[in-house]
Design a protein around this nucleic acid. Structure first.
Lengths: 206, 206
DNA sequence: GTCTATAATTGGATAGAC
DNA sequence: GTCTATCCAATTATAGAC
């Protein structure tokens, strides 16, 4: 399961990403200094610039490492055949497992101070695709009569809020409750389903 | 309804709080400079220190202005008599209306870079009370047979995630969808209720 | 690949005039 | 209550030795 390399034990580049992610979470991206990152890694401040061109490049790598996978997951789920309830449930399980399995603490990455920065514009486009795919699944479910007639944009925000909370609490190697992924999926589906008895109770690992 | 003063139009102190909240949201607290705040207000940087002892005091006031009200709301709901479903529903409506009605953009206030800072330790204690009260209402509902046998700690996190998302999107005078508060309450209650027909459909303004 | 040294800028906060 | 002037510490990034 933990196929992603552990940021603490690999080469210097991985150590920089790992320590930087923790500092971005604790201090914010803009306020985290390259000296603090270097100190945490155990090298001198100028040595960072052998591995990354700038502080911004460190953040870009962290950003991409998580968001690219999440977008792939959600767009696959949104464009697959089958009931929206099943697709949304499976996506939620997979995405919670993804963010909880990230070796990096992504709390400092998904904040306005990063996402509003013109330097990280590619993020905005990818995140819009992420949001659009969630909203599409919700509308699919409503159109098919599986889901209540909710405001799809509101549900998309609620889902993002729940996923973001999981990311803030459990990304970066912090142990998550074993049932978290299924709890998230069940919570959201229960809120949406017209008939709660139609709850998908699949387990991909069964 | 909008009984809280508008940060743009009142005295210098209120203007500082208003502009600072927007900058904390856009750049993060630690990275926002006192010069940026002063420029936004239209005064010189040292003039800030006539109104606030330090940059940290500005944040403390923002922190307290929102959290004190939210804690009062949730603790009142948690200790009131009556069905947990009704209490939780009414609290969610009131809290969403509270954060959406805040004159300050609180996105930069409820982040790890602030809440993990030793300077703002009082926040931690108040937020724990906020979380405990939510968790208590969930357990009340489970014990009374109103709610499914969910993990109360998970539900507390999910609710916080949804409320935080509303705060990030709509605090600071940004117009929120008219039905947001009831959508939030209905979403959460639907996820929890054993019998969806028991949904509280109260409106305090009816 | 890491180091020392340093350039060029910007940070929070104070002193004291008006 | 706002201003000018200023202190001292800390910032990102580069140059060049080893």
């Amino acid at each position: 399961m933990a196929s992603i390399t552990d940021g603490r034990t690999t080469g210097t580049r991985q150590r920089i990403l790992y320590e930087a992610s923790n500092l971005f979470a604790a201090r914010g991206y803009h306020a985290t200094t390259t000296r603090e990152i270097a100190d945490a890694v155990g090298i001198r401040q100028p040595s960072l610039f052998h591995h990354f061109r700038s502080k911004g490049e460190i953040l870009q790598v962290l950003l991409t490492s998580d968001l690219d996978r999440s977008v792939a997951l959600v767009e696959s789920a949104a464009s697959s055949p089958g009931p929206a309830a099943d697709r949304l449930y499976d996506f939620l399980v997979a995405d919670v497992e993804l963010v909880c399995g990230s070796p990096y603490n992504l709390s400092g990455v998904y904040t306005d101070e990063v996402t509003a920065d013109p330097d990280f514009q590619p993020w905005v486009e990818k995140n819009r695709r992420f949001e659009d795919a969630i909203e599409k699944m919700v509308r699919d479910g409503i159109d098919a009569g599986e889901f209540r007639r909710v405001d799809a944009a509101f549900v998309r925000d609620a889902v993002e809020g729940i996923l973001l909370r999981a990311l803030m609490s459990y990304s970066g190697g912090r142990a998550a409750p074993t049932n978290l992924a299924h709890d998230v999926a069940t919570f959201v589906l229960r809120a949406l389903l017209v008939d709660p008895a139609a709850m998908p109770s699949r387990s991909s690992d069964g």
